[in-house]
């Protein structure tokens, strides 16, 4: 195929040029296996929970194994001298986008970075940046798995948000009992004795996490509760006028610090 391309666009690493004796094939092996290792490491250490929805973890794990298998086969082929005379470079079906070695290096460097730098769950700063609401984001269809029969004190934070989306009048929930877990956000628009108790919702991967939260009225200044610390809050619901609108607010009776869950997101 490449022979009838005009020469100015011919692949830069043309057939049987430096590839058959250079280190580039080994760079291929390294780059591909590094991604396999990265995926399996995230799986083993539970970090996958921070990155993607549990439904798709299987895909990542299988892909990790698949990448390692491809790398292993390539090693076998490279070691097997008879196989080295590849009769036709299938690469000639594509034009290369990068100079030789660059695509590999990009992949390798990224995977090594991923192995070295730990991914971290999003925290309050990201929540403020993305804008916490007590409603599901307008561009999203609401979840169908909502059940109305739950007792108020059994609702998670997300259940509350979903309930509120179905019936947004805050007065309807006055004096209902609350027991929710989440992380603390010091929202700048709220008075000093309020925090937001928040969770991130994930549908696919960290690219689409979005924060939801409810305001919590405290007996004292919020400085006692650091941003990003995790709390279990008990209390009851009431309506408050905050930041210029009526909002469902938790009147707290107990705030219990809890450790950050292994899986900080909700679904």
């Amino acid at each position: 195929m490449s022979a009838n391309l005009p020469s100015r666009r011919r692949r830069r690493d043309d057939k049987r040029s430096p590839r058959s004796f250079s280190f580039l094939p080994w760079l291929d092996v390294l780059a591909i296996s590094s991604w396999g290792v990265l995926f399996l490491k995230y799986w083993m250490t539970g970090k996958l929970y921070l990155l993607i929805h549990p439904n798709y973890m299987g895909l990542t794990i299988v892909a990790g194994v698949g990448l390692l298998v491809i790398a292993a086969i390539k090693v076998l082929v490279l070691l097997n001298a008879r196989r080295r005379s590849v009769p036709l470079d299938p690469g000639s079906q594509h034009l290369t986008l990068f100079p030789p070695g660059w695509g590999n290096m990009l992949l390798l460097v990224t995977a090594v970075l991923g192995l070295v730098v730990e991914p971290r769950a999003f925290a309050s700063q990201a929540a403020i940046h993305r804008g916490i609401t007590d409603s599901l984001v307008s561009t999203r269809i609401q979840h169908q798995s909502f059940t109305a029969s739950t007792r108020p004190e059994d609702r998670t934070l997300i259940d509350w948000i979903r309930t509120l989306n179905v019936y947004p009048e805050p007065d309807a929930y006055t004096d209902q009992k609350v027991k929710v877990q989440g992380f603390v956000v010091h929202a700048p628009e709220l008075p000093k004795n309020y925090i937001l108790i928040s969770r991130f919702i994930i549908t696919c991967c960290a690219a689409d996490v979005y924060p939801v939260g409810l305001p919590v009225k405290l007996a004292q200044s919020r400085d006692a509760y650091k941003p990003d610390s995790w709390l279990e809050i008990q209390g009851h619901m009431q309506t408050e006028n905050l930041a210029g609108r009526r909002q469902l607010t938790i009147q707290s009776t107990s705030l219990q610090p809890i450790p950050e869950p292994k899986n900080p997101y909700d679904y």
Binding site: L51, A63, C205, A206
Partner: peptide, 25 residues
Amino acid sequence: MNQFNNAFTLFLSLLVEAVPFLLLG
């Protein structure tokens, strides 16, 4: 720094989700 960490987590999560499909394709 926190911002950088968020960006990096986001970046990794896109890759972790996308690479299986890339491989399949």
